[in-house]
Structure formats: C-alpha cells, structure tokens
C-alpha cells in the first residue's frame, strides 16, 4: 500500500511511541510508590545534630531526648532546654550550637525539619507499639549510626499491614540503646520472658479483627509492657 520507505517510517514511529509510553507507564507506576518517593529523604537540619555522636558514641538512650514516646502517640523531638542541660557546660561556646543558644535565650522554638510524616488521615500511635516491646529500629532503621536522620521505611499502608499480619518477621525486639522498659531488670538471664499477650481473632474466620489482652496495671504510673500480639487490619483502626 505504502512505499517501502514510508512503511519503514510508520513502523519505526509506532515502535518508538509504544516504547516511550511503556517506559513512562512503568516509571510512573513503580516510581509513585512510597519506597521510591519517600525513602531516603534526608533534609539538612538547621543545627548539625548527629545521632551517631550522641547515641552511637556517648550511648545516650533514645528516650532521654524523645521522652514521652512510651506514653503518647507522638514522639517528641526534644526542646532546646534538653540540649542545654548538657550544652550549658559541654561545648558552651561552639558556633555550631549558636542557634540552640539563641532559641534557649529568646524562647522562640528551633525549627527542625520534619523527616517522617504520615498523611493527616492516618493515626499512628507510638505508645502502643513501644509498650509491645517493638524497637525503634524496626521502623526507623539504625538511627544510632546516622549522622543526619533519613527515612528508612516507606511508611506506606502496605508496610504497616505487612507487619501487622506477620509481626514475628518484622519486629526487632527492644534493644538496650533505645531505653524501652521491657519489664525485666537489665541483667536478667536467658529464659525470662515478659508476659505474652494472648492474641485471638474477634471474628471467625478472622477478617483482620484481632484482640490482644492487655496486662493489668498494678501500680498507677508504672507501665506494664507486653509481648507483641497482632496489629489490627480493620480500616477504622488507622483511619478515623
């Protein structure tokens, strides 16, 4: 029908358009996942604060600065008065800490850049996970080796559910450096375990509705940690 030259050009054209569309589709399909867009976000902070120095070398536990992570949904980033508790003496003149001193004196908060951020329609609760003895490293990676904090986990819905379905595979148990209370003295021998929570489905067959029993509070204010049961899979547990 066409001349051989035109025929070849039409074939080439169709091939290159199809190739471009396919590549674009693959890139958008895979590139839009959180594991590509969000993982590796490592903003430069206003003060060159290093977890590697403070946690890795000095051995300060996570809860010293992120105090309240065991009690509240939100894990607080420390106030400047926490920093000044030590830096009023240590490196008191360091130019790298100028912003911290300024914030401490004027009372205007220091604006750290936020790294981990779930969409506002998801509710995540730190306290519940920490109480079950899940270490920070399960979700935040080896922070004690990071000079600048970066996001390690995708924080996507699939990631939450993967762990809620198979907690044994994804949980790193509480480590010494995190300072999480597991109900045992530090030098307890092997074989001593925290009370394991019973975990049973509310419905039969289980449609992701799980119930874990919570140990009784014996002394008001002193927490009673538990072994992790299963996380929920019902929509209303996270979206409300």
């Amino acid at each position: 029908m066409f001349t051989p030259d035109l025929d070849r050009r039409i074939k080439q054209g169709i091939l290159s358009v199809a190739g471009t569309v396919l590549t674009a589709a693959l890139v958008t399909y895979f590139g839009m996942h959180n594991r590509v867009t969000d993982v590796g976000y490592r903003p430069q902070q206003p003060v060159p604060f290093s977890h590697k120095l403070h946690v890795g070398e000095l051995g300060i536990k996570c809860v010293y600065c992120h105090a309240g992570v065991e009690r509240s949904p939100h894990s607080p980033v420390p106030t400047v008065s926490t920093c000044m508790g030590c830096h009023i003496v240590v490196k008191a003149e360091s130019p790298r800490l100028a912003l911290v001193r300024e914030a401490y004196e004027t009372g205007r908060p220091l604006e750290w850049r936020r790294v981990h951020k779930l969409p506002d329609y998801v509710h995540f609760n730190h306290a519940r996970h920490i109480r079950a003895g899940i270490d920070c490293a399960s979700c935040h990676g080896p922070v004690e080796r990071m000079g600048v904090v970066s996001q390690v986990a995708p924080l996507s819905m699939g990631w939450c559910l993967d762990c809620h379905r198979n907690p044994e595979k994804h949980i790193i148990p509480a480590r010494e450096i995190s300072g999480i209370f597991t109900g045992l003295p530090a030098q307890a021998g092997e074989g001593t375990t925290v009370r394991i929570a019973e975990s049973r489905p509310v419905t039969n067959p289980p449609y992701g509705l799980w119930q874990t029993s919570v140990p009784q509070q014996l002394i008001p204010g002193v927490p009673t940690p538990k072994a992790p049961g299963r996380g929920p899979e019902t929509c209303s547990a996270c979206h409300y």
């Binding site: 693959l26 590139g31 590509v36 867009t37 976000y41 490592r42 970066s150």
Partner: peptide, 24 residues
C-alpha cells in the same frame, strides 16, 4: 531505584503526586 532496592538520598521533600488530604 524503581523497585526500591537502591535508596536515593535526597534533600528535596518527598514528591506528592496526588496530595489529596495529606496535609490538612
């Protein structure tokens, strides 16, 4: 990179392709 095996560190805020109600 696209399969998430290789982490690309970046200082840019994460790309939000459809930012529906992410930031209320």
């Amino acid at each position: 990179v696209l399969s998430g095996q290789k982490t690309w560190f970046s200082e840019q805020p994460p790309l939000q392709i459809i930012p529906d109600m992410d930031d209320q």
